[in-house]
Design a protein around this nucleic acid. Structure first.
Length: 263
DNA sequence: AGGATTTGACCGTT
DNA sequence: AACGGTCAAATCCT
């Protein structure tokens, strides 16, 4: 199923080196120049959502790297062949925390111009979702601990430093973020769903729609929007009776605030 | 059917 | 020789 260069058929006896040369020769002069122009080296990022950065990638390899516990995955821009886009990235898990942090090494800039604000929004939503999931798991662990302590009264603990003003503010902010995330995700899904049938008729694609195919057709610029939650609103996994401040700390939400705009 | 992913082999560099 | 990066046949998935 792998597409081959027109310059080499499947029965060719060419060596790999010769194959590479043929591929290079077949590349157009313009593409070669474009690739030289955008070759700016590499940059490294750390993220919780390495697979949703606003671009479409195709995996072309995976390798265990010496000294790392996790494999490194190799990705190229989906439009590497179609548009000669030189962008590529390596993704490797950086730690075993929950959610795990990934190191992403980007090489070369995109020349395909397929990113858009809606995809960026989806990327930040993925980060929010993963962090919220982790927060929920922590709360569930706290609940189990609480139940265990009800059965065996705590002898060792001093009374928890229950909810200072700063702690309450931070928890309120976290609640706002969760509510905002859910609302913006719901909006995004609604827009994508309404756009999808039209796309299907236009393109006749059988397969699932690539993220960029859907979002590129949406003229809406969706970005996370901070919508303060009502003070009355209680999220059961955030109840004071459930939370033990030793276990659940307010998240660092600075990155979210930077990416939002107030409605 | 055909695009995406997996994975062992190959290649260049150190 | 060891290692990291890439290729491409086989396989998976929709």
């Amino acid at each position: 199923m792998v597409k081959r260069s027109d310059n080499m058929d499947s029965s060719s006896e060419c060596s790999r080196g010769a194959h590479k040369r043929l591929l290079q020769d077949s590349r157009s002069y313009e593409q070669e120049n474009a690739m030289k122009k955008v070759c700016i080296g590499t940059r490294t990022e750390y993220t919780y959502a390495p697979y949703h950065d606003g671009y479409q990638w195709r995996k072309y390899g995976q390798k265990m790297i010496r000294g790392n516990s996790f494999p490194r995955c190799y990705y190229r821009c989906t439009y590497h062949q179609d548009h000669g886009c030189p962008a590529s990235k390596h993704v490797e898990q950086h730690n075993s925390e929950d959610p795990p942090l990934f190191r992403v090494i980007y090489t070369n800039e995109h020349t395909c111009g397929t990113s858009n604000s809606a995809s960026d929004y989806m990327a930040s939503s993925m980060q929010i979702q993963q962090i919220a999931d982790a927060s929920l798991r922590k709360a569930q662990a706290a609940e189990r601990l609480r139940k265990a302590e009800v059965e065996t009264p705590r002898l060792m603990h001093s009374p928890p430093p229950r909810c200072s003003g700063g702690y309450n503010i931070a928890m309120k902010e976290e609640k706002d973020v969760i509510v905002s995330s859910l609302l913006t995700v719901i909006r995004g899904c609604h827009i994508a769903e309404s756009a999808a049938p039209l796309l299907c008729r236009q393109t006749g694609r059988r397969r699932r729609w690539p993220e960029a195919t859907i979002t590129a057709s949406c003229s809406y610029a969706i970005s996370p929007e901070l919508l303060p939650a009502s003070d009355d609103l209680t999220l059961d996994f955030m109840l004071d009776s459930v939370l033990d401040p030793h276990w659940v700390e307010p998240l660092d939400l600075a990155w979210f605030k930077e990416s939002t705009h107030t409605g």
